[in-house]
Simulated scan of single mutants.
Amino acid sequence: MSKDKAGNFVRLAEKRLANVLEAIRVLGNLSNRGNYTYTDEQVAEIFGTIRSSVAEAEGLFGITAPPPPPPPLEESQAVWENPMIPISEWQAAVTAGETTSGYMNWMDEKRAEGVPEFVRRFQC
């Protein structure tokens, strides 16, 4: 019976994690200022609500404290382990008419290098 429970947990966790990641990805689409107008306060409220919900779910699993922050990265490590560019550079590229899909594909590849296989399967 415990095999069925473990199997059910994995099966449902995979589906639900995929749904959560898709919802977060689609939420990110709202950041397009060409299509939407929003305030910093609205964005803070959205992500505050998400953080509260995550903390509540963690509590149900018995996770009471957030994990400690990772140690600071050196400049050269940060580029590969956290492949983000400053928003001003990204905005300049978009304004110049450069496509962002190439950057997004590159960023997804770099993120996948440091993401466990269980989670990587559900990233969009």
Rank of each mutant, 00 (worst) to 15 (best):
S2M: 15
S2I: 13
D4V: 12
A6T: 07
G7A: 09
N8D: 10
F9H: 05
R11N: 13
L12V: 11
L12M: 11
A13M: 12
E14L: 14
E14M: 13
K15S: 10
R16V: 07
L17F: 11
A18L: 04
N19A: 14
N19F: 10
V20A: 05
L21G: 02
I24K: 00
R25V: 00
N29Y: 07
S31L: 09
N32Q: 08
R33I: 00
R33L: 02
N35D: 06
Y36G: 01
Y38C: 03
D40G: 02
V43T: 01
T49P: 01
T49H: 03
T49W: 08
I50Y: 07
S53V: 08
A55S: 15
A55I: 09
E56W: 15
E56F: 14
A57F: 09
G59M: 07
L60I: 09
F61K: 08
G62L: 04
G62C: 07
T64L: 13
T64F: 07
P66N: 11
P68M: 07
P71M: 07
L73G: 00
L73K: 05
E75M: 01
E75S: 06
S76E: 12
A78M: 13
E81C: 03
N82P: 00
P83D: 02
M84L: 15
M84W: 12
I85W: 14
I87H: 03
S88P: 01
W90K: 11
Q91T: 00
Q91H: 05
A92G: 09
V94P: 00
T95G: 11
G97R: 13
E98R: 15
S101M: 14
G102Y: 14
M104A: 10
N105I: 10
N105G: 02
W106A: 03
W106I: 00
M107K: 10
D108G: 06
E109F: 01
E109S: 04
A112T: 10
E113C: 02
G114L: 11
V115A: 06
V115W: 06
P116D: 13
E117I: 03
E117W: 11
V119Y: 04
V119E: 07
R120C: 03
R121T: 09
R121A: 15
F122N: 02
C124F: 12
